[in-house]
Amino acid sequence: EEKRQVKQVAKEKLLEQSPNSKVQVRRVQKQGNTIRVELELRTNGKKENYTVEVERQGNTWTVKRITRT
């Protein structure tokens, strides 16, 4: 359940930055209360990979860091 929520948060964050792209989740890793989500962003056939680190704060998820990989 929490992985599902985190995927959603990570996707939304990337789509905010580039709204007309397609996002696909590649991998989800958990480390303590930080969850790392690896995503693939496609814009006009151009692929970019991103890693989004999401942290739990109380009962909400906040995006800590977005890295292009």
Rank of each mutant, 00 (worst) to 15 (best):
E53M: 09
K13I: 13
E53A: 06
E53I: 12
V9F: 12
V9T: 04
V28A: 06
L39C: 14
Q31M: 14
K64E: 07
R36P: 00
N44Y: 09
K7T: 15
P19M: 03
A10F: 02
R68C: 07
L14W: 02
T51A: 11
Q8P: 02
N20Q: 07
E2R: 03
V37W: 01
L15W: 03
V6K: 01
L15Y: 03
N59V: 10
L41D: 02
E1S: 08
R26S: 11
K47M: 08
N20L: 08
K22L: 12
R56T: 04
Q8W: 04
L15H: 03
P19W: 01
I35M: 14
K11F: 05
N33K: 10
V37I: 05
R26W: 07
S18T: 05
V23F: 02
N49T: 10
K3S: 13
V54K: 02
T67V: 11
V25W: 03
A10M: 02
Q24M: 14
G58A: 10
S21Q: 02
T69P: 06
L39H: 00
E48Q: 06
E55I: 13
L39S: 02
T60V: 14
K3R: 14
T69A: 09
L41R: 03
Q31E: 14
T43Q: 13
N59H: 09
R27K: 08
P19K: 04
E1R: 06
V52R: 00
T51N: 04
N44F: 07
R36F: 15
V52M: 04
K11C: 09
E55M: 11
K46L: 12
K11T: 08
E16H: 04
T34G: 06
R68T: 06
E2K: 03
Q24N: 10
R68V: 10
R56Y: 05
Y50V: 08
G58T: 05
G45L: 08
V52Q: 00
K47C: 07
I35T: 14
R26C: 06
K7L: 15
R27I: 06
T60H: 11
P19E: 03
E2I: 12
Q5P: 03
K7E: 15
E16Q: 09
V23H: 01
Y50I: 04
R26L: 11
T69R: 10
T69V: 11
K64G: 08
R4S: 12
T60Y: 09
K47Q: 08
L14N: 01
P19Y: 01
T34Q: 05
R36A: 14
Q57I: 12
K30Q: 15
Y50G: 00
L14E: 01
V63G: 01
K7S: 15
T69E: 13
N44H: 12
R68G: 05
I66P: 02
K47D: 05
T60P: 01
G45S: 11
T62V: 14
T51Y: 12
A10S: 02
K3V: 15
V52A: 08
V52S: 01
N49G: 10
N49A: 08
G32A: 06
S18R: 09
V28Q: 04
R65Q: 12
E1D: 10
W61A: 01
L14P: 01
S21W: 02
N33A: 11
E12W: 03
I35Q: 05
K22T: 14
E40H: 10
S21K: 02
R68K: 13
R56S: 07
R65M: 09
S21T: 03
I66E: 01
A10G: 03
L15M: 07
K30H: 14
N20F: 07
E12M: 07
K3H: 12
N44L: 11
Q5F: 11
R4A: 11
V9Y: 06
L14Y: 01
T51V: 14
Q17G: 07
Y50P: 00
L41T: 08
Q5K: 10
R4T: 08
Q29L: 15
G32K: 06
Q29P: 00
E12Q: 13
K47A: 07
K30R: 13
V9K: 03
R56W: 12
R4K: 14
V63A: 06
E48K: 05
V28F: 09
G32N: 06
Q24G: 05
Q31Y: 14
G45A: 09
Q8R: 07
N49C: 09
A10Y: 01
R26N: 09
G45H: 09
R27G: 11
R4P: 02
E38I: 11
E40F: 09
E16A: 07
K47R: 12
I66K: 01
I35Y: 15
V63E: 01
K64D: 03
K64Q: 08
T67R: 07
K11N: 02
S21H: 03
E40Q: 10
Y50C: 05
Q24L: 13
E55R: 05
L15N: 03
V9L: 15
R36E: 13
Q8C: 04
Q8E: 13
A10C: 04
K11L: 13
T51K: 05
R65L: 11
L39F: 06
E48M: 07
R26A: 04
Y50E: 00
Q57K: 11
K30L: 12
Q29D: 14
Q5D: 10
E2H: 05
A10T: 02
K3D: 15
Q24W: 14
R68L: 15
K13S: 09
S21L: 02
R56K: 14
I66D: 00
R65S: 14
L15A: 03
L41W: 02
V28K: 00
R42L: 12
L39R: 00
S21C: 02
V25P: 02
R26P: 01
T60M: 12
N44P: 07
S21I: 01
K11M: 15
V54W: 01
T43F: 08
R65K: 13
E48P: 00
G58I: 05
N44R: 08
N49P: 04
K22P: 02
N59R: 05
T43A: 11
K47W: 06
T62A: 14
L14V: 07
R26E: 04
T62W: 07
V52C: 05
V6F: 05
V37N: 00
I35E: 02
G58F: 11
R26G: 09
N49E: 11
E48S: 08
Q5H: 12
Y50F: 10
E1G: 07
Q29E: 12
I35S: 10
Q24Y: 15
K13H: 07
V52Y: 01
V54Y: 02
I35R: 03
I66R: 00
I66Q: 02
N33G: 09
L39E: 00
K22M: 09
P19T: 02
E38M: 15
E53P: 00
I35G: 04
R56N: 07
N33W: 05
E48A: 06
S18G: 02
K7A: 15
E53C: 05
W61K: 00
T34D: 05
N44K: 11
L39Y: 03
Y50W: 13
E2Y: 06
Q8N: 07
V28E: 01
R56I: 04
Q29K: 12
R36D: 04
E2W: 15
R42F: 15
Q8D: 11
Q17V: 11
V52N: 00
R26T: 11
V9G: 01
V25S: 02
T60L: 08
E2P: 03
K7Y: 14
A10Q: 01
N59Y: 13
Q57S: 11
E1I: 06
V9H: 03
T67H: 09
K13A: 15
K11W: 05
K30S: 15
V23W: 01
E12H: 05
